[in-house]
Measured scan of single mutants.
Amino acid sequence: MATGGRRGAAAAPLLVAVAALLLGAAGHLYPGEVCPGMDIRNNLTRLHELENCSVIEGHLQILLMFKTRPEDFRDLSFPKLIMITDYLLLFRVYGLESLKDLFPNLTVIRGSRLFFNYALVIFEMVHLKELGLYNLMNITRGSVRIEKNNELCYLATIDWSRILDSVEDNYIVLNKDDNEECGDICPGTAKGKTNCPATVINGQFVERCWTHSHCQKVCPTICKSHGCTAEGLCCHSECLGNCSQPDDPTKCVACRNFYLDGRCVETCPPPYYHFQDWRCVNFSFCQDLHHKCKNSRRQGCHQYVIHNNKCIPECPSGYTMNSSNLLCTPCLGPCPKVCHLLEGEKTIDSVTSAQELRGCTVINGSLIINIRGGNNLAAELEANLGLIEEISGYLKIRRSYALVSLSFFRKLRLIRGETLEIGNYSFYALDNQNLRQLWDWSKHNLTITQGKLFFHYNPKLCLSEIHKMEEVSGTKGRQERNDIALKTNGDQASCENELLKFSYIRTSFDKI
């Protein structure tokens, strides 16, 4: 039985969820670079991206490699990797027998973001014989899940209580170790020597080791999670996991709180800001991140802002960003909400898709409305799209047979046209069989910064309504002859009103 693990408890099935942008060198404390989270699957090609990484700022997932063999891993080693800020997950990587050479110096898994409450997941690794993470000293947050690894031993010899604050939620089941077939031998045991430290858990006094050649490092209890030197002297209180010299914040392997210019500090002093819960960055760093993602459509890219001495992905609820200094300031009234469309555009074809934009005031991208039916549609669209004030790209209304009016965009005031449909149009209306009105132009103002209007096959939309939009939106004169079809717009509506004058002759039985 794995020490510190839980057996036999019912657990939810383990679901495996399925960018080499360097964020800056980590400095003297770390020998390499800070790398983003990685999802490495199918083959070993991307694994080489770990070569210079000291910190993975995010998670590391290595999974679904069915053609790899043990010899493929023999020359692979990433000794610079010290810390993973989120979680480490391995799933069905064939041929991998140990992690001792792959990650010989991995010391800390912070667990800032977890995989279903777990910071370390080893699942269905069919050839893994031992973990071998002999320098792993601290899992700051989260638990361990090690399950269905039929060859995995050296679990009962690990004292997880020396690595985690609590072992109650560890789930370590259905491994070879369960069948008591392992016969784990710690260093020196074969020669009758006791080389590794022994600890007591559940009444068992057991030597602690990761492999037959690597003991588990056990520091004096007084050192807590700070770690200790090879001689057993406690590291500085700002260290986490390990250090090369005692009581020196510049000799830590990793930091308990924050890293700044080669030393570990309790908090980031001005003019620095907390970033990702582990390091200090200056304003320029946060500003660069903001600008890199301002026009990016890459998933996970955030326009970072500053709030409460932190550089964070977005302002919290009730705050909006001051564009001059990136500071989050309290909103006066309802907060603006910028919604970034991942692929640059979004099609609204149902109430469900409209709900995804609920509360958005600025759309960074283009909207395509293609709704053919739905219950209580006008009210639903207004509830979900009615706060949109600005669209950076274009607005396209296409084959939306259920629409009679666009009044559900009740606050839309600006279409920038930074991206144009077919390279020309910022407003595009095609084949809307029941569209009769755009907006009530006596109450609604709309500016279209650039781009043209396109109207074709809107049989109940009168040309007068379209011409009014040209005047109000500032697009009059931009359109070419064929942009607004004269014969297919309003051709099934009563669009022309003329005053009919009647004269009559009164007659009676005795007068003409």
Rank of each mutant, 00 (worst) to 15 (best):
R162M: 10
C234N: 00
R46E: 13
L260S: 13
L174S: 06
D75A: 12
K294W: 10
E314T: 05
P336K: 15
V281S: 02
A119Q: 00
M125V: 04
D247Y: 08
H290S: 06
N138M: 13
D184W: 06
A190W: 12
D277M: 15
D169I: 06
C301D: 06
G188W: 15
D277S: 12
L60C: 07
T189V: 14
L136G: 01
N135L: 03
T320E: 14
C209G: 01
C228G: 03
H212C: 06
D177C: 04
K191C: 02
C196V: 03
I84E: 00
G183T: 13
E151M: 03
G227N: 01
H307Q: 12
L60D: 00
P36I: 15
N150W: 11
G58S: 01
C215R: 04
C335G: 02
M137V: 11
E238M: 07
N179A: 02
C196Y: 02
C293L: 11
V108H: 13
W160F: 06
G58T: 01
P336V: 13
K191L: 08
L128F: 08
L240G: 11
C235Q: 00
E231K: 01
D72L: 07
S143P: 10
D72K: 03
Y94C: 10
H226L: 09
G111P: 00
Y273H: 14
L133P: 01
R297Q: 13
A119H: 00
T189W: 03
C235K: 02
C286Q: 00
P330M: 13
G111L: 01
M83A: 04
T68K: 07
S323F: 05
L136H: 00
C315F: 00
T85P: 00
R263G: 08
N42P: 02
P220T: 09
I82C: 04
N149L: 00
C243A: 00
N105L: 03
R162W: 11
A190H: 14
A156R: 12
Q61V: 06
L260M: 03
T194H: 15
R92V: 04
T199W: 09
I172S: 14
S323K: 06
M125R: 00
L260F: 12
L89I: 15
D261C: 05
D177G: 13
T211G: 15
H291T: 01
C286D: 03
K292L: 14
V108I: 02
N117L: 04
D184A: 13
A156P: 02
I222Y: 06
L120E: 00
N257Y: 08
G333V: 04
P316Y: 08
S54Q: 06
I201G: 03
N202Y: 13
M65C: 05
K217Q: 14
G142V: 02
S284D: 01
W210L: 03
H28E: 05
H307G: 13
G232P: 07
P270I: 07
E151W: 11
V305N: 12
E57W: 02
N322L: 12
C280A: 00
Y134H: 01
R145V: 02
S98M: 02
L240Q: 07
Y171L: 07
T320F: 07
T267E: 08
A190Y: 14
E151R: 06
C280V: 00
R162A: 13
C209Y: 00
Q303L: 07
P197L: 03
C223S: 01
F103Y: 02
D177V: 07
S98G: 15
G300K: 15
S161Q: 07
G183H: 13
Q303S: 08
H290Q: 15
Y259H: 13
Q245S: 07
K176D: 03
A119R: 00
V93P: 00
H48N: 13
D288P: 02
R141W: 03
S284M: 09
K191E: 03
N117D: 02
D177Q: 12
E181R: 03
R162D: 05
L99W: 00
C252P: 00
C228I: 02
F283K: 15
H59E: 08
S98W: 01
T189N: 05
I163R: 00
Y94T: 15
S324F: 12
N325I: 15
F258R: 07
C239H: 00
V144W: 00
K224I: 10
I158G: 01
R208K: 07
Q204F: 13
M38A: 13
P271N: 08
D184Q: 04
T68N: 03
A230K: 15
I222G: 11
L152W: 00
K67Q: 02
G333A: 15
S284G: 05
C215A: 02
V34T: 07
C280L: 00
D72M: 13
K217N: 13
E147R: 01
I56S: 02
D72V: 15
L60Q: 00
S225C: 11
S244W: 09
F258S: 07
D165Y: 04
H236L: 02
V144F: 01
L136Q: 01
I158S: 01
S213C: 03
A156D: 04
C219H: 01
E130Q: 13
M137K: 07
L326N: 10
N325C: 13
M38Q: 15
I84M: 02
Y118W: 04
T199C: 03
T320P: 05
C234E: 02
N52A: 13
H302S: 08
C328H: 00
W160P: 00
Q216M: 07
L81C: 01
T329F: 06
P104A: 03
Y259A: 08
K224Y: 08
N105P: 00
F205R: 03
T320G: 14
N257H: 05
R256G: 05
C243D: 01
N308C: 02
S98Y: 05
G32Q: 15
N325P: 08
P330V: 13
L260A: 08
I84R: 00
V121N: 04
C219R: 01
W278S: 05
L133K: 00
L128W: 00
V305G: 06
G132V: 01
N257D: 07
F78Q: 03
N175W: 03
A156Y: 10
C286T: 05
Q245I: 15
Q61A: 15
T250I: 09
C252L: 00
D177N: 11
F115H: 13
N308I: 03
A254K: 00
P270R: 09
E71S: 13
L44R: 12
V55Q: 01
P31H: 14
T250V: 07
C243G: 00
S77I: 13
Y259L: 15
P187D: 06
N138S: 12
F66S: 01
E49Y: 07
C53W: 00
C53G: 01
H274F: 14
R263A: 12
N257V: 02
D247T: 07
D288E: 09
N309L: 07
N295V: 02
P313A: 10
I222M: 10
I163V: 06
L89A: 02
S112Y: 12
E97K: 14
G95H: 10
A230R: 15
N42R: 03
S237T: 09
F103G: 01
F275E: 02
T221P: 03
S324K: 07
P220H: 11
E168F: 12
T229G: 07
C234F: 02
E130N: 11
V200R: 02
C243L: 00
I312S: 03
E238P: 01
P104W: 01
M321E: 02
S54L: 08
D159G: 04
N43Q: 12
Q287V: 05
L233F: 05
C293M: 00
K310Y: 09
F73G: 05
Q61I: 04
W160V: 00
V34R: 10
I56H: 01
L233R: 13
S296L: 09
L289S: 14
T68F: 06
L96I: 10
E57N: 07
G318P: 05
G203Y: 12
N202R: 05
D75P: 06
I82Q: 05
